[in-house]
Each structure stands twice: as structure tokens, then as C-alpha cells.
């Protein structure tokens, strides 16, 4: 069954188009990553799906309920962790969770019990106000606050932006535990790695629509997998080096004379790391650095958007 469904979702502000016909299918119990740069429309999509914003066109259903016609049913079935950590900073973690428990219409005793469970589960046994929490703790509290009723569908809008690596890993672990328990998760992110770690399927969003969709592996293979970077000492021989790199490449080779670097997508990193240095040495080209790395989001993004959509200005409301 589809937990989140969007068809031709549109949102315009005057002449600005934030969403331009977004389609989305998120299967029950799966994790979908919306990947895209700032202004692509990710947050707008989440805000519409969580009933915070009315679409200008198209339709969307969450947990089987139309987001415009049955917002209250949608709200009973979702948890939202927004872009900003939306906990009350003057309340303690426990007071926050009890407050949100009461607003979920739990009785006082049930709200207290649920708060205790969530504090335990997220390691938040800290008595001070939330403003004294670390960024990671605040984010975990935020996540806990969205899980009061164990919602079947959870929305995470850039859940780890601005967090240190340890906190990021903790959030990832928490999300994976939820998914293991059957929760459907829709998360937006600017980080390919995050989508890679968490998402079953990734939708790349640009200018308010989905420009590519698939498993992380499918998307990466569309880019030709990893990227090989070779920096050579003598700029005169850049063209020769590009020729050698081309033999191991799965796509077009880019040359950057200023950096004395050639760069190419490679499908087989081991082959690239053995054959290219050997070929360079055989040709007498001295290499300063040879690396194989994952494509950056910029590269995924530039590659996908360059071929699949016309240039189109998207606006996103923060």
C-alpha cells in the first residue's frame, strides 16, 4: 500500500513556482529520500503533505487520507520533524513531551508515561531546560516529540543539517530503528550520503518536480558510479592524461587546466585505481594525486538536471 502519494502537486506564490507538478509514491514501511538543493521545493512538499500548506493544484494523500479534505485524519497519522528544531526551549525534555502528549489528547497519566518511555529511548534524561541541550540532544527531543502516538508516517525535513557527525549518526540510528518497526519515513536532505544511508528510494527534486527517482544504487550508476580524479604535475600533458582516464571512464572526462586535474566517472573503482596509475607511469606522466571518490550531490544534481529538465527557477519558502 502507498503511505504517501502525490499527483501533480503544485504550489505557486504569485508568479513564483515552488512546486511544479510533483509526483511521489512512498510505499508503506519504506524510506523515501527527497534529495535536492535549497529552493528545489523539498520543504514546500513536506509542508503540503503535513497539512501546513495548501497546494495550489494537484492532490496528495497521506495514510490514505486526502491532505486538503481530511487534514485532521492526516494529522492523527503523522509525525513531523521540521527544518527548525521546534521544541520549547524553556521547558525540560520531559515537560516538552508531556505538553505534546496532552495536545495529542493523552490523559495526564498517559502523557507522563509516554514522555518517560521516549526520554528513556532517546537517552534524554537531562533535567535542565531544552536550551541547555546540545544540538544533537535537541534534535533527538524534537524527534521524540513527533513520535508521541507512534505515527505510521514520519516526515523529517533535513533532520541532520547542522549536526555534528556523532549526532548525525545517532539520528540515523533512531530513524533506522523506527523503520525496522514498520514506520514509513519521508525525509528531505541535501546530503547524498544521508539519502544513501537511510533511503530505500530517492527522488531527486529540482525546480519543484521530481527529475529522477530510484534506489540510491540506481541513481549512482546513472552517474557512472564513483569519480576518478587525477592531478598531474605538468599541465602540458593534461590532454594525454585525459586520454588515459577515458579508457577507465564510464562517461565524459572533464579537464581542469588550472587545477591540472582530469576527472571522470568510473564504474569499477578497483580497475580504475590499478590501470590508470600504471598507464600514466608507462606514458611517463607524473601524477601528484590519484583518488577515487563518491560523486558529490553537486555532481549528481548537475548531471541529472542538465539532461532532464529545462532551466527553471524554483522558489522555496523557508
Amino acid at each position: 500500500m502507498t503511505a504517501v502519494l502525490a499527483r501533480g502537486l503544485r504550489k505557486t506564490y504569485g508568479t513564483k513556482t515552488a512546486l511544479d507538478g510533483l509526483d511521489l509514491d512512498v510505499g508503506e514501511g519504506t524510506v523515501c529520500g527527497l534529495l535536492g538543493p535549497n529552493g528545489a521545493g523539498k520543504t514546500t512538499a513536506v509542508r503540503i503533505l503535513t497539512t501546513l500548506l495548501r497546494p495550489s493544484g494537484g492532490r496528495a494523500e497521506v495514510a490514505g487520507h486526502d491532505v486538503v479534505r481530511r487534514p485532521r485524519e492526516v494529522r492523527r497519522n503523522i509525525g513531523l520533524v521540521g527544518q527548525h528544531t521546534a521544541v520549547d526551549e524553556l521547558l525540560t525534555g520531559r515537560q516538552n513531551l508531556e505538553l505534546f502528549g496532552r495536545l495529542h489528547h493523552l490523559g495526564a497519566a498517559a502523557a507522563r508515561a509516554r514522555a518517560g518511555e521516549l526520554l528513556e529511548r532517546f537517552g534524554l534524561r537531562h533535567d535542565g531546560p531544552a536550551k541547555d541541550y546540545s544540538g544533537g540532544m535537541r534534535r533527538r527531543l524534537d524527534l521524540a516529540a513527533s513520535l508521541i502516538l507512534a505515527p505510521p508516517v514520519l516526515f523529517l525535513d533535513e533532520p541532520t543539517t547542522g549536526l555534528d557527525p556523532r549526532s548525525r549518526t545517532e539520528i540515523w540510528r533512531a530513524v533506522r530503528e523506527l523503520v525496522a518497526g514498520g514506520t514509513t519515513v519521508l525525509l528531505t536532505t541535501q546530503y547524498l550520503e544521508e539519502a544513501d544511508r537511510l533511503a530505500d528510494r530517492v527522488a531527486v527534486v529540482d525546480a519543484g518536480r521530481v527529475v529522477a527517482e530510484g534506489t540510491p544504487d540506481e541513481l549512482k550508476s546513472r552517474l557512472g558510479g564513483d569519480r576518478l580524479d587525477v592531478v598531474i604535475r605538468d599541465p602540458e600533458r593534461l590532454a594525454e592524461a585525459a586520454g588515459i582516464a577515458a579508457r577507465a571512464a564510464g562517461g565524459p572526462v572533464e579537464s581542469d587546466p588550472d587545477a591540472r586535474r582530469v576527472s571522470a566517472p568510473v564504474a569499477d573503482r578497483v580497475k580504475a585505481l590499478t590501470e590508470v596509475p600504471a598507464a600514466l607511469a608507462a606514458a611517463g606522466i607524473e601524477a601528484e594525486d590519484i583518488t577515487v571518490r563518491r560523486p558529490t550531490l553537486d555532481e549528481v544534481f548537475l548531471t541529472l538536471t542538465a539532461t532532464e529538465t529545462p532551466a527553471h527557477a524554483g522558489e522555496e519558502r523557508a
Partner: peptide, 18 residues
């Protein structure tokens, strides 16, 4: 509103006027 607390309230199944 700026901190997103209002949005969190609005995403809950509580009475909006509250």
C-alpha cells in the same frame, strides 16, 4: 512562528484555535 513551534502545533491533531 519563527522557531517552528506554531507549525508543530498546527501539525498536531489538536484544536487549531487552541
Amino acid at each position: 512562528a519563527a522557531k517552528g513551534v506554531t507549525d508543530r502545533f498546527r501539525s498536531l491533531p489538536m484544536a487549531p484555535s487552541a
